[in-house]
Design a protein around this nucleic acid. Structure first.
Lengths: 362, 362
DNA sequence: ATGAAAGCGCTAACAG
DNA sequence: CTGTTAGCGCTTTCAT
């Protein structure tokens, strides 16, 4: 038992150089290190099987090389395909840059204690990615106008502008309207999300209706029902729709889960989804392809959304730490506000129509 | 910009005591701190809005107060209900004890680089919880016989004995056999999991068959089909079963997903699940309750499995760090093996029959 | 009951 | 190109 773990000091001794040198090659700031020394150090590292401590490494510049993924305290949050896919994307992009991922759930007392600030302050993480945000999360105002590195993934707000990366839901709405119109549908029902709470969903619905109007189809208010983004409620919503207008030929659901719920409702009404009633979804989750008939939908590429969100946040963090370094000595006093150079991340990612078998030409 | 973040030093000054004292009250080692001082310190902390750095805190004793959840690189791993539920349970138990959770995916090169050791060595995490293990993960032998804190959640191995916590799959098998028998079924089909790869699933199947035999029902080999734990394959397996013996009155699937797949197959065969053919599942995932008819199943309480796994690992870590401290000065040389006191965690958690509407009395 | 001092393992000025 | 040195913020003996 050689106790005391091998440290940078041992490597220095083993390779006959100083701590600094080892540290330098470790950090790839090797602009100045001679190739020979570099190799010698690398060799020693190998021989000693040395692993630099993340803790010690982070301490001097106060960064943990870790990001937090924050999700609301929904039941089974982690069991959700949507979250799952985004998380996978985040994980990948983070790993690419040597960052680790930490999980945090915004439970009631997590929010009350403002733990989302603590994790930042205690150097547990260098930034936060918030998935599943909605208008209800008013505590997010703690990030409004600050330079705290939080980025909202696939959502945005009316009141505060926070860093964000999201799918282009407006384009998605247009794509759906165009496609349905092109396929000859004019009698259409729409299963929306909770448009007052989730703004992306509002974008989708609005754009869908507008484009439909432009193309000469008016969507009656009563033919828009909230399906709460869930299968079960999607089914309910579809039943409602079918009852209000038994003659609709197509239904556009704001996500695939609700579209699949619609399948069920249509079947139970004794009709065939994708034949008697066309169905179009949005998201392109894995089951959309496996469903019978294959669900025509709009791919949001959530994996990519996660990855791009992560990259943006990482960039943000990098520029911020860079900036604060320069400022440190410069500003003496009255600089309490956010620096002018602080830019907001605000990206919209392209979406894509995926044509399968659930929409018939009429 | 008050730059330099408030540190323990500031708190000490503000409250007129020494660093040591502040540290002591922080760590609740306050056996010796007078109530008066304690309050004064706590007050200062409040006033200064002080948050101790996790990095600095961990450095001296090399612990991060963080656990890793490791999952295999399945597609959509994080989008899986099973994982999701366990993760939620882990999160809760970890939070209870002030631990954070880190996510790690065992991709090909993660394994090749033995990153699972690195995260431990570089003090990123104090322990690892591995979910979704199977016999194929041969690299787990790196943990066999060591005192590295890794615990296998809801799985075990033939070759290595690692710390583990799992549901009592044998009891589950017996419960299912008893129930089906009690309901009068003797012509039974079984959709198993990949029994050669996932041992828990083997336990389940074996116990099911044995108990069935004890109760006088022999399950023909040809009436056992592997459904790979997936909906789609479960459906396929059920079709197979229905073809091999159209007269079976009940089917027991090793998980709910496959049971739900069986529902589909039964329907497509023009029969009614839960009526013409009884179906029983295992796991009690959320959709089991929502299905039509409600699926009779065995609750494994995965949330609890996650939580208990986490607690066991945490205990393990605690006793280990405690022990290593004592040993540090004691053993001089020849002690290369695991200390005799090192106990294996090996727990089996109870399961429960959930009776709903999918099994008819015959 | 409290304080002084010595690290933990690394980074980053600043020298040379 | 490389070494010296001074921390980063906290824990932990060992004194008092």
């Amino acid at each position: 038992m050689g106790k005391t773990r091998v440290s940078i000091r041992d490597v220095a001794r083993e390779s006959g150089v100083s701590l600094t040198t080892v540290s330098l090659v470790l950090n790839k700031n090797d602009a100045r290190i001679s190739e020979a020394t570099r190799e010698r150090v690398l060799d020693a590292i190998q021989r000693l099987d040395y692993t630099p401590s993340r803790l010690a490494r982070g301490l001097p510049n106060r960064q943990s090389k870790t990001l937090a993924i924050l999700v609301p305290a929904l039941q089974h949050a982690f069991a959700d395909v949507y979250f799952g896919e985004i998380i996978s994307g985040i994980y990948e992009a983070a790993a690419e840059r040597g960052f680790r991922i930490m999980l945090e759930v915004a439970r009631r007392d997590y929010v009350k204690r403002r733990e989302y600030l603590t994790v930042l302050d205690d150097c547990s993480v260098d930034g936060i990615l918030f998935i599943g945000a909605s208008e209800e999360h008013t505590w997010l105002q703690d990030f409004h106008g600050t330079d705290r590195p939080l980025l909202v993934v696939n959502n945005h707000f009316t009141q505060w502008d926070l860093h964000r990366v999201e799918c282009d839901y407006q384009q998605a709405g247009r794509l759906a309207a165009d496609y349905l119109t092109d396929m000859g549908h004019t009698r259409i029902g729409h299963i929306s999300g909770p448009i007052d709470k989730v703004l992306t969903t509002a974008d989708l619905t609005t754009a869908f209706i507008e484009r439909l109007t432009e193309r000469g189809t008016r969507l009656a208010d009563q033919l828009i029902v909230d399906g709460k983004l869930h299968v079960e409620f999607g089914k309910l919503a579809c039943e409602e729709l079918l009852q209000r207008d038994p003659a609709i030929t197509a239904i556009f659901a704001s996500n695939d889960k609700m579209a699949l719920g619609a399948y069920q409702a249509i079947r139970e009404a004794g009709k065939k989804p994708g034949q008697d009633v066309s169905v179009m979804g949005c998201d392109d989750i894995a089951t959309a392809r496996l469903a019978e008939p294959g669900l025509t939908t709009i791919s949001m590429n959530f994996l990519n959304v996660g990855a791009e969100s992560c990259r943006s946040l990482l960039d943000l963090i990098k520029t911020q730490t860079g900036r604060s370094k320069n400022n440190a000595g410069v500003n003496g006093a009255t600089n309490g506000t956010v620096p002018a150079e602080s830019l907001r991340v605000d990206r919209r990612l392209p979406v894509e129509l995926i044509e399968r078998a659930s929409v018939q030409r009429v």
